[in-house]
């Protein structure tokens, strides 16, 4: 489970792309070019990229309302993504889904989800389907710390475990379910401890350490693919931005946010690659610049894309 130098550079590029994309989306929101709401994962990039790096391209993911990073790491076309954010016909969901429902079914992203915990039971069905069809693929299901306190978590983890389904459950513990701290929401230190109740391995990792995430998820993927069943992984991380656009950060301190910013997963991985001699500072800068340029190109594509035609308003309700 060692990564090639080229792959490591690629993973750094993915993290920069996610950061660039979300910063741009935030700006466009402020400018009124994107409406509704959005949930930014800035500060959590290693969790998305490290987890998905452990998958094969044909493996599947289920994402969350905070899913921009998952979508990009799964290989989404930034232009179609940005077009979706702007509600354009060329977007992944033809402008019908937006940030919170973005999906790239052909690319193996079975969708973000507007309902906390909404994807977890679906993962059981996907895992069952893959197993029944003997497809040798696995499904990686992201959810947050908040979702681990919903009933669906219990039903789904149990079903996946009793049937030894090829599922990897990745809990992105970013410390808050909207404003509710994990310290108040859980009587236990590690969410992954709950895995024991389902007879599956539970692993808690530093979610800002890309390599640690990659290694833990790789173990879980190997287990899932070999028919041994699911694993629960907890990536401990932090979202720098508010829960959504309505968040005034009344539940946490500036100091806490600053302390986590010091643990930036991108800076950390970049420093590691430079230290390993895989990259020079200049090369790292270039990767960063290219990421921002790619996002700018996506914005240009989205801005010049057409709105959905009103005549098509009811399309897609039924097959």
């Amino acid at each position: 489970m060692t990564l090639s130098e080229a792959k490591k550079r690629e993973l750094l590029r993915q993290m920069y792309t996610i950061r660039a994309f979300e910063e741009k989306a935030e700006q466009l929101y402020a400018m009124g070019k994107i409406h509704g709401t959005m949930h930014l994962s800035i500060g959590m990039e290693a969790s998305a990229v490290g987890s998905i790096a452990a998958l094969r391209p044909d493996d599947l993911i289920l994402s969350t309302h905070r899913g921009h990073g998952h979508c990009i790491a799964k290989g989404a076309d930034l232009r179609l993504m940005m077009a979706e954010f702007m509600g354009k016909e060329t977007g992944y969901c033809r402008g019908r889904g937006g940030s919170m429902h973005i999906a790239d079914v052909e690319g193996g992203n079975l969708g973000a989800n507007g309902v906390v915990g909404g994807g977890i039971p679906i993962a059981v069905g996907v895992g069952l389907s893959l197993k029944m069809q003997k497809r040798d693929q696995i499904i990686l299901c992201f959810f947050g710390d908040g979702a681990a306190n919903l009933g669906p978590f219990h039903e789904a983890l149990n079903m996946a475990a009793i049937w030894k389904l090829p599922v990897v459950f990745v809990c992105e513990n970013n410390q808050y379910a909207m404003s509710f701290s994990v310290k108040k929401a859980f009587p236990i230190e590690r969410i992954s401890d709950r895995a024991a109740a389902y007879g599956m391995p539970g692993v808690t990792v530093d979610g800002n350490d890309l390599m640690a995430v990659y290694e833990a998820v790789s173990q879980a993927v190997k287990r899932a693919r070999s028919g041994e069943g699911p694993t629960l992984i907890e990536n401990v991380t932090y979202r720098w931005r508010g829960h959504s656009k309505s968040d005034a950060n009344r539940y946490r301190t500036r100091e806490e946010i600053e302390a986590w910013k010091q643990k930036c997963p991108i800076k950390r991985f970049r420093a590691r690659l430079i230290e390993e001699g895989i990259l020079t500072e200049e090369e790292a800068d270039r990767i960063e610049q290219e990421a921002y340029a790619a996002v700018d190109a996506a914005v240009a594509f989205a801005e010049t894309s057409p709105e959905p035609a009103l005549e098509t308003i009811e399309e897609g309700v039924y097959a």
Partner: peptide, 9 residues
């Protein structure tokens, strides 16, 4: 959830 995910795939 199981029928939804299975049908989706």
């Amino acid at each position: 959830g199981a029928i939804t995910g299975a049908a989706l795939t």
